[in-house]
Design a protein around this nucleic acid. Sequence first.
DNA 1: CTCGATAGACTTTTCGAAAATTATTGCCAT
DNA 2: ATGGCAATAATTTTCGAAAAGTCTATCGAG
Lengths: 233, 233
Amino acid sequence: MASTSSAENDVAARLRADVLGASLPPASPLRLMDLTGRYDAAPGKVREALLQLASEGLIRFKPKHGFTSLPLSIEELWDVTHLRIKLESEAVTQAIESGDEAWEARIISALHLISKVETRSLKDRRALDGDWSKKHREFHSALLSACPSQWTVRFCETLSDHAERYRRHSISVRAHARDIHAEHKAIAEAVIGRKAKLARELLSDHYTSTANAVAANGDAFETLAKKQRGRGR
Amino acid sequence: MASTSSAENDVAARLRADVLGASLPPASPLRLMDLTGRYDAAPGKVREALLQLASEGLIRFKPKHGFTSLPLSIEELWDVTHLRIKLESEAVTQAIESGDEAWEARIISALHLISKVETRSLKDRRALDGDWSKKHREFHSALLSACPSQWTVRFCETLSDHAERYRRHSISVRAHARDIHAEHKAIAEAVIGRKAKLARELLSDHYTSTANAVAANGDAFETLAKKQRGRGR
DNA sequence: CTCGATAGACTTTTCGAAAATTATTGCCAT
DNA sequence: ATGGCAATAATTTTCGAAAAGTCTATCGAG
């Protein structure tokens, strides 16, 4: 979360991208030796990366039984979504109160970069998901970057990761790209215009409709999870 | 947080107790080899424990420079306190809505155990801090144990750890023992009586007055922190 | 006397094989 | 057939020495 300095710990970063990016099936065991092969790293290094992800709640760890990816559940989806709305609304309100021009510039910059990726994705329509997700994350992070409460933004980032895991597991991000971009633009304008109440409402709608879209495909992963669970025991 | 299975990983538990219990000075480097001696464990094991604490934000980690304990700052104290009030109020409200008899029993049980420790501390007045803190933590945990939002509970526990770090660094917990016990009793009664609004107010007062007591001694650790910081660079 | 570079000491980090633990398979008795 | 038991296989965990990196102190030049 705060400790991965990008170039430093490559394995942890790639592993996280795979967990978040739905490259790994949910609720399945993550065998240490498979991963040493997959990432070409020493067992100890992989173990360290796995432990780090476990501490963020992205995977589960049972002391002598190894690691497993988490199942997806509709209840947790809504838990994450509701809490995220609550915390992020608060964070944005505080950011609006104490944000300066540099903060506004960061938001506009991030919004621009998202739209760049989106236009690019019209031509080259595969595998932009990772790129788009990164810019999307940075946009929401920019919104919160003027919030004086470090703990609030930290929790928001954690929830953001988990929300992304659900999003990437169920829907193709490009599916509703146009709508989403309009929403982002509206949010950015409300925030920079210092309209806290409007911003909160837009943010709430934004996350709620995303969660609804995920939940619509939710039956799929619910049954999948059950199947996996049944096999596991 | 969730991954330490008590007896399993001894070093991490002891290290955490020392960080929370103010046995280690704030804002000072945690040298790997010192700790291997202190806990009589292999370097790798200590490193693992250190990384775990770093992921919880209890210590800082710079990739090739090792670990340092965190400084104490009044701003962070209030950040933790305010967010904790917000989240824990919400969690208690939800717990009140959906708690059953077993939940009520857990609260009463935990309250009883606290008072036991407090009466015991009248005779044997030293080194009960660790024991009292443990029971105190369990009481607040019991309050939240019927909250259906796992994420809210998890964040509350993280904040609870950090609040304890501040408390233990500045004031002797027994100092206001009688007042605190009355507060706990009042909170328990409000919660079990399903008076959500009252419970929220009491909880808020409880944490605010603790934070005030810590902040009153705050000048001490602020100057200490400055001295350490000046020496460090 | 100040500044910069180089050598040395000290810390952290990595790696891979050995050890401990758990899961699986095949077998025998009931 | 079924249920328990033992041996085997697979996997995780540990350990310590070697390697890479960082900080400090000394020495020489300007």
